[in-house]
Design a protein around this nucleic acid. Structure first.
Length: 592
RNA sequence: GGUUCCGUAGCUCAGCUGGAUAGAGCAACUGCCUUCUAAGCAGUAGGUCUUUGGUUCGAAUCCAAACGGAAUCACCA
């Protein structure tokens, strides 16, 4: 049973019978009643005063009376100005709850037969992952889970940026300064080892630039002519020519990086259905350039370079192929978009990429639309803000980043220390405790990054540990553990899982009302690609449950029926918390 | 300079498809553990929702402008 739609219908009838007016159902909006007033649903009558030809207050009163007479749902109402506050009968709430309990997949939607691709992570193989990547990965994974819950068939992909001048920088520095060092001999994770050489390159390169500038060369000129940069560029040419030695070095170093990434991904709890590598796709897109020229969407300049004029769209002229016939970034993205569609034929494609590339994706999507690609309308750039440090922006080259592995480890350590301090882990095995610390530490980190609107850039202060109290994953996990304890006790006492009561406490009503909104929140999160909708919901639900927990006694209830009901209610909250958190990629413990 | 995004409590953020006295968390202060997990609950205090104008019965929410911050506008990726 759905209280809202049922109320909408009856209100529609009321308009017809009381005022002789037709009111489309979608115009009948119900909102949650403010806490200070009696009731749970509010109907605002101001906009309909003309329709009813009565003042808002009178309109509200008449509709209230009509509802009370014509539906079992409404047990009482009150009118404040043009606000009609409705109190829903306990029997209706119990019916709603009974419906929820019978649905094993409550809140999740059946398959809609549509495919959607979520591309996220997209790391460079010349350095380890950092805090910004964590936001990207958690977002991408969560959005994929949310879309699955909305009935989509989801393909998670990762386009690895494994070639280019930046990779050559690491390779060159390794060749020059590495002395044959390996992850084994250095004891470093492969990605960190390569990242070390990326930073080394930058240091040595800067020294060369400074030296050249000291000789009187201009900065721009120095940057171009510095021997290290020249060498890196030569290396890129050799790589593109397929030079055996260069390709072997590239493969060896990349293998180390992938081994390191695999560990990081595992700990982050993210995965992919399909990997794409730039080394395979960077030559793609030239056929699309031909296609665009043939269709007259692109044009060629005298020097042979190919362009598109997007000034009518408020964008500039944009290069799509260099004069020498080689690709630029967007050429490859055009080709990759095509390949991905050929591989999967998805209706929608979500690119989880930082907002620094807003312009690029605007251009990319506009071009694909102009080319009349069948998939063009389903493209979406999930643009998220950068994570800044108090000192400013993170820069890998300068080593001023919060490393992903370090941060995860630190969070787990914090969770460990906090758990031990609270001394609640006596009954845990060593392995069980380890799993718990991991769950709490990583969970807190994910929640911290996912609870914020993706669009907003966020500040991260490494000196302030991420909280484990208040609006955090820990609080929600704690609530789940609490519920689990209730359920274990209920099993020991052989409490039947049945609902056989007539009256509800206010706290119980509030919990049921919140539970009932879960499917809507899942839909909203899917529509807006917004994990923050789910994180907020999980928090609200946990908060509401804790209020209930403090206000009513479960095992010392007046009657056995009440105890049984409260156990079932607790169980349902526990399940819903678990589901909501799973959409964020966060696990919840049975005890903590 | 053009374009896009952001500006809500001391701090971090919700709310933004227009509705009542703008909500959480942290930090500060006060209560609540001999009964289901106090990683909790209840409460106090903290706001000209950047500013100005407009639309509206009604604006934090929509529109316009200004101010402040960020990103971007490469034959880089």
């Amino acid at each position: 049973m759905n209280i809202e739609s049922s109320l909408q219908q009856t209100i529609g009838q009321a308009f017809k019978e009381l005022f002789g007016a037709e009111l489309p159902l979608q115009d009948i909006n119900l909102q949650a009643t403010r806490k200070d007033f009696e009731g749970s649903h509010t109907f605002v009558t101001f906009p309909f005063a003309k329709l009813s030809k009565k003042n808002p207050q009178e309109t509200a009163r008449l509709i209230g009376e009509y509802l009370q007479q014509h539906t079992q749902l409404v047990s009482a109402f009150n009118v404040v100005q043009g606000f009609l506050n409705l109190t829903i009968a306990d029997s209706a709430w119990l019916q709603v709850f009974a419906d929820i309990v019978t649905q094993a997949d409550f809140g999740f939607y059946a398959s809609n037969g549509q495919k959607v691709m979520v591309e996220y992570s997209s790391p460079n193989t010349n350095k380890p992952l950092h805090l910004g990547h964590l936001r990207n990965n958690f977002l991408g994974y969560s959005v994929a889970e949310i879309l699955k819950a909305n009935g989509y068939d989801v393909i998670k992909t990762n386009l690895v940026n494994d070639r280019g001048i930046h990779i050559c920088k690491s390779m060159l520095a390794y060749q020059k300064f590495g002395n044959g060092e390996t992850p084994e001999t250095s004891g470093m994770k492969g990605d960190h080892l390569i990242g070390k050489y990326y930073v080394l390159f930058d240091k040595a390169y800067k020294q060369e630039i400074d030296a050249l500038k000291a000789q009187g060369m201009a900065e721009e000129e120095a940057k171009k002519t510095a021997p290290l940069m020249q060498e890196a560029q030569q290396m890129l040419v050799k790589w593109e020519e397929g030079d055996k030695e260069t390709v072997e070095l590239w493969q060896r170093l990349n293998t180390w990086v992938y081994t390191g990434f695999a560990q990081t991904y595992t700990r982050m709890g993210v995965d992919f259905d399909k990997m794409y590598y730039e080394s395979n796709v960077y030559l793609l897109g030239k056929d699309i350039v031909e296609e665009g020229l043939a269709k007259g969407v692109f044009f060629k300049k005298e020097n042979g370079s190919v362009w598109i004029d997007l000034s009518a769209e408020g964008l500039d002229e944009k290069l799509v192929l260099r004069a020498d016939g080689t690709s630029v970034y967007i050429t490859q993205d055009l080709g990759t978009a095509d390949i991905k569609y050929k591989d999967f034929g998805m209706e929608k494609s979500i690119y989880v990429v930082g907002n620094e590339q807003d312009y690029h994706f605007n251009v990319l999507f506009t071009i694909l639309k102009k080319l009349g690609k069948p998939y063009a309308d389903g493209l979406y750039h999930l643009s998220y803000g950068m994570v800044d440090l108090p000192t400013g922006r993170m820069k890998s080259r300068e080593g001023t980043v919060v490393d992903a592995d370090d941060l995860m480890e630190e969070m787990v350590q914090t969770a460990t220390a906090r758990s031990q301090e609270l001394g609640k882990i006596e009954e845990f095995s060593e392995e069980g405790a380890r799993v718990l610390y991991e769950m709490l530490g990583i969970g807190a980190l994910k929640y911290f990054l996912l609870k914020v609107d993706p669009k907003k850039r966020m500040l991260f202060n490494p000196d302030e540990a991420i909280e484990l109290h208040g609006h955090t994953a820990t609080f929600i996990q704690y609530t789940h553990a609490r519920i689990s304890t209730i359920l274990r006790k209920a099993d020991l006492m052989d409490v039947k899982r049945e609902v056989n009561i007539q009256k509800l406490q206010p706290a119980e009503k509030d919990v049921i009302a919140l539970l009932a909104t879960f499917p809507d929140r899942v839909k909203e999160a899917g529509r807006d690609y917004a994990p923050s909708v789910i994180s907020q919901y999980a928090y609200d639900l946990a908060k509401e449950y804790n209020r209930f927990f403090a206000e009513v006694s479960i095992f010392n209830a007046d009657t056995a029926e009440e105890t049984a009901f409260r156990v079932v209610l607790s169980e349902q909250v526990g399940k819903t918390i678990r589901k909501a958190m799973s959409l964020l990629g966060i696990s919840v413990p049975e005890r903590m």
